[in-house]
Design a protein around this nucleic acid. Structure first.
Lengths: 350, 350
DNA sequence: ACACACAATGTAAACCTTTACATTTGAATT
DNA sequence: AATTCAAATGTAAAGGTTTACATTGTGTGT
């Protein structure tokens, strides 16, 4: 037999479909007696509501789109895990879109927001395609949107992430406090906001210390860390410490240096960023700046749910020490300097 | 103004809604003239089909559920990336469910299959909850299902993964070929099939060589690798090589050994499994068995789409050297031994 | 000139809910 | 006993498509 519908249940229970519907969605308004009869009929038939019909009628999908540059990347997937947790707490489904750097795919996924597949979106890709941007700037019917980790340069889109300039400053100051003066920053791709923030944090700290800043551009990947090794070695003035904008780059760098006979931290201190799970098992164990990635995801999702009119206000509860700026638009979660073995005090001899 | 519907388009174009619908879903049957008129009207209004209405009418969602034990885990997220790629190629949406080891959550997500939120599922969690199992064994209306990476012990569910017994044998034989005789296998949790397969591959290879097998149970995590270090060191007969069932465990092990002064590969050879991206930047660079995770995901998704009646038969095309067993139910993709620096020939002196 | 086939289009039902509004029921108040 | 009110339930519309079937129009073969 076919899937039971609400009509079947109503018939068996001897009530109207309205009562069945109410029993499920708003039990308080139906009498105890009916509730029981209906529930029995439901159990007997194995009825479950048809989501498509619900969505059509209610004009919402209870789903959110999550746009990621690369699901396979451990940095994003940890945030994803947080998002998933908060989503299922709010009984929301998440649709994941991997943009893989393609703007076409981006647009394609964002169409979910207009065709009713998703009610809102979490943007981890640091980019807002033209179509939506126009929609936003017109100020009209705004789609619930939250940018995560990587801020958008669009105004009015709530954001949750970390304070990158502060974190970079903290990182740099740690290296300074160890006596290093020739500190290079191996940065992310210059195009993104996150990189610009970290750069300025680094530059500010160096400036305050009266030192010159040197920035090498990378792309967060292991390979770009490896490539940086030879660049570093060919620099006129050899640095004694490198602050990397990702743990991946730090590892790539250390491993490439190692194969050239340069030892970390003895010959060079290296500080990472993110605190991915593999840092602690690395040799040397990686000193780094921890980003609370799981919580970033969780808070972002909660914020989105809030925007969509859900009743959850747990965001502040979940992230007790978050900094909130611009009237609640921007939530910055605290980072933490994690000291392990890849950084050490500048040795007099070197 | 509200979102345009098919009626708006029809009115503007001066045709019936049927013609509009056909223009979008089956253009061949409408005249060139009408097609043009309709497309103009669509562009003018910015109309897009309402997915909920489509889903309701067509009784399908064009979405698939992907059940993962832990999105945050880099092993799974790489497979996910492959899944995503194949999914969007087939114009399918993926709904990700993180079971986080909870059977309740599992059940909850699988309800998507009956309430019409998803048309099929990819199971990466190695487990089929009772509800569905009963459904399957009754042999009746089968839900399109594919198990990925971790096989199910349920009959009749197609699977795509690797040949774990072969891969483990290959791994062990490599270590044997390097002259090692005291080889320990640091395995996954005994409960899962994958572990049992790898164990038997290892045991078979050891047996063939006339050596005794020693299995240490872990859980794939870095921490369990670390824990294994002390167990290993306290063993009466010290092994000269360890074959780990995951790269994570290998790294945890190496790093814990390192802090006890034991050097890999000089004092001990360590072989990993999976070839996660961080292995190459590890020190020493990790020798391992590569799993084509991206392709596993892709092939699995293609298989599922095939099951759902989609026209795609690209599976064999995408994975030219896959082994297919049991009448196509099981697809095994080739693994590869990747030799780097963590294994070496047994030194005479040791 | 007529029947016929075929292509193009239109009409209306069906998909399954939720919910505004109407109705019934029964108790409490006068 | 009549009235009022609230609680519980029912009726029917609406949500936006797709598609089976019916209709119209056009050209072909006789």
């Amino acid at each position: 037999m076919a899937r039971p519908t609400i009509d079947d249940v109503a018939r068996i229970a001897g009530v109207s479909i309205a009562t069945v519907s109410r029993t499920l969605s708003n039990p308080d308004v139906v009498s105890e007696r009916s509730r029981k009869i209906v529930m029995d009929a439901i159990n007997q038939t194995g009825y479950t509501q048809n989501v498509a019909a619900q969505n059509l009628r209610q004009q919402r999908s209870n789903a959110v789109l999550v746009l990621v540059p690369d699901i396979g990347n451990t940095y994003f997937s940890a945030i994803l895990a947080g998002i998933e947790r908060a989503a299922s707490k709010a009984r929301m489904t998440i649709l994941i879109g991997d943009t893989a750097g393609s703007e076409d795919r981006e647009e394609e996924f964002l169409r979910y927001l207009v065709n009713g597949r998703a009610d809102g979106a979490l943007l981890l890709n640091g980019h807002l395609p033209g179509s939506l941007r126009a929609d936003l700037e017109s100020g009209g019917s705004t789609v619930p949107l939250v940018s995560v980790s990587e801020a958008l340069d669009a105004p009015g889109v709530p954001h949750v992430g970390i304070n990158n300039v502060l974190a970079a400053r903290q990182a740099t100051e740690h290296l300074l406090s160890l006596g290093h003066k020739k500190i290079v920053h191996l940065a992310g791709p210059g195009s993104n906001i996150l990189t610009r923030d970290r750069n300025s944090g680094y530059q500010a700290a160096m400036g305050d210390a009266g030192l010159t800043a040197t920035i090498l551009e990378g792309d967060f990947s292991i390979e770009s860390g490896e490539r940086a090794a030879s660049v570093l070695l060919s620099m006129p003035m050899q640095p004694t410490a490198v602050f990397c904008a990702s743990d991946e780059m730090a590892m790539g760098l250390i491993s490439a240096l190692y194969s050239q006979g340069i030892k970390v931290p003895d010959d060079l201190s290296v500080l990472g960023f993110d605190d991915i799970i593999f840092g602690s098992a690395y040799i040397p164990a990686l000193s780094t700046i921890r980003q609370p990635r799981h919580m970033i995801g969780e808070v972002a999702m909660e914020k989105l749910v809030g925007l969509m009119g859900g009743g959850i206000k747990a965001a502040s509860e979940a992230a007790p020490d978050a900094t909130t700026l611009r009237g609640g638009y921007v939530t910055l979660l605290p980072t933490e300097l994690v000291l392990r073995k890849s950084t050490q005090r500048l040795q007099p001899g070197v």
